[in-house]
């Protein structure tokens, strides 16, 4: 009991707005955002692929900017707005970039997909017609071991209405 009190006293209370919903949560000061989002808030769409900031699977938006949740301390996000993959669809209606991922076969194992979608969402929000170079740059930090990136690239082009890319799935 005393143990529990002691360990709780080491915790800190922070406020996170996640996908529009406010959460007040007690966290360990060294807790990473990815673990808080997955384990404490229960949104497991955000993935952890390397826990070391080099695969992009944990990408989510913090105040609209794409960030690596595995390399971000949760305490640093106190008072900030977090957006995860779970928030992209509007109920049953997928966002254009989600649709494009389906249409282009940009999903294989799907483990990189949430991170990819968040990077692309951030890109399109600030740059509705990104060039090939800009797409490459935006996806630089997102690794995919399955697709070879071609379908993902085409999905971004389709979602931004470029290069006449049409769905290949029907």
């Amino acid at each position: 009991m005393i143990e529990a009190v002691k360990s709780r006293s080491r915790k800190r209370l922070i406020t996170l707005t996640v996908n529009g919903e406010e959460h007040e949560i007690a966290i360990r000061p060294n807790a990473m955002l990815v673990d808080v989002v997955r384990d404490q808030i229960g949104l497991t769409g955000t993935k952890s692929g390397c826990s070391s900031g080099s695969c992009g699977a944990c990408t989510l938006l913090i105040d609209g900017r794409p960030m690596l949740a595995c390399s971000t301390l949760a305490v640093e996000c106190d008072g900030k707005a977090i957006r995860t993959v779970e928030d992209l669809a509007d109920g049953e209606r997928l966002s254009p970039i989600q649709e494009a991922f389906l249409d282009q076969g940009a999903v294989q194992c799907g483990f990189c997909t949430p991170g990819m979608l968040m990077s692309v969402t951030a890109l399109i929000a600030s740059n509705p017609k990104p060039s090939h170079q800009e797409i490459k740059k935006a996806l630089e930090g997102n690794l995919c071991r399955c697709t070879g990136y071609n379908a993902i690239f085409n999905a971004v082009l389709q979602a931004t209405g470029q290069d006449g890319i049409k769905p290949i799935m029907f």
Partner: peptide
């Protein structure tokens, strides 16, 4: 046809 779980994948 897309991957059977593609919809689940893109929504997390």
């Amino acid at each position: 046809l897309p991957h059977d779980a593609a919809r689940l994948h893109v929504t997390g």
